[in-house]
């Protein structure tokens, strides 16, 4: 059962909904104009506003009377509850972690053994770097072939591949002049002094 406020024809329920912002656009506009036109409705709205501010002030006052330590205590309890749930869901360590843990007693001897093996490998490999007498590897080619440039000249397999390591210079002579070696990254460049006048190339560029 709804009862109208005075002679306005507006129920208290609709006015409350208007005050709370629950009415749709057209309804809200219509009620707004009624409120503007009716001193009774305006008085009701002011009454609702006063009650609202009174309630908020009361709650704020009560909240201020609670010490902040109590809020921290509540928050601590929440965090503690979150931690407990996280611990309950914590996954088992991975297979590798468990394997590594199980290797704990043998870690040092194992690492030492592998280190010794790696060192021996390096020593053996570096000792075999000296090339064998090349003549014994392959019979000498009687006539060295100088391939003239031509469109059909043999092409090296993928030439776009850059070397992983630059050239290692074992011996170097500069023919009576000076020079130097420069290496950055994979690039090795021999810079040679060549005191000649620029010479015209016979080839077009």
């Amino acid at each position: 059962m709804t009862h109208s406020i005075g002679q306005t024809g507006v129920s208290a329920e609709d006015l409350q909904r208007y005050f709370d912002g629950e009415l749709t656009g057209a309804q809200a506009q219509e009620l707004a104009s009624l409120v503007d036109a009716s001193p009774e409705l305006s008085a009701e709205i002011r009454q609702l506003q006063r009650m609202g501010s009174l309630v908020r002030d009361t709650l704020r006052h009560e909240a201020q009377s609670i010490p902040s330590a109590r809020f921290e205590q509540v928050w601590d309890e929440i965090e503690h509850a979150i931690d407990i749930r996280a611990d309950e869901r914590e996954p088992q360590p991975s297979l590798w972690a468990r394997l590594w843990e199980s290797l704990r007693p043998a870690r040092i001897p194992l690492i030492a053994t592998l280190g010794a093996a790696a060192l021996a490998l390096i020593l053996v490999r570096s000792g075999s770097e000296d090339p064998e007498p090349v003549a014994s590897v392959e019979p000498p080619v009687p006539n060295p072939v100088a391939v003239p440039e031509s469109p059909r000249a043999p092409v090296l397999p993928p030439t776009t591949a850059e070397p992983a390591v630059g050239a290692e210079i074992h011996d170097l002579q500069f023919g009576g002049k000076t020079g130097r070696i420069a290496r950055t990254g994979t690039v090795t460049v021999l810079y040679v002094e060549e005191d000649l006048e620029p010479k015209q190339s016979e080839r077009s560029l």
Binding site: G166, A167, T188, L190, E194
Partner: peptide
């Protein structure tokens, strides 16, 4: 002008800068 013994990986490039 220059003579060198060097080792290099397959497809590795050695550069020599000569004069002008």
């Amino acid at each position: 002008l220059v003579g060198t013994d060097y080792s290099i990986e397959d497809h590795g490039v050695l550069l020599i800068q000569a004069g002008p």
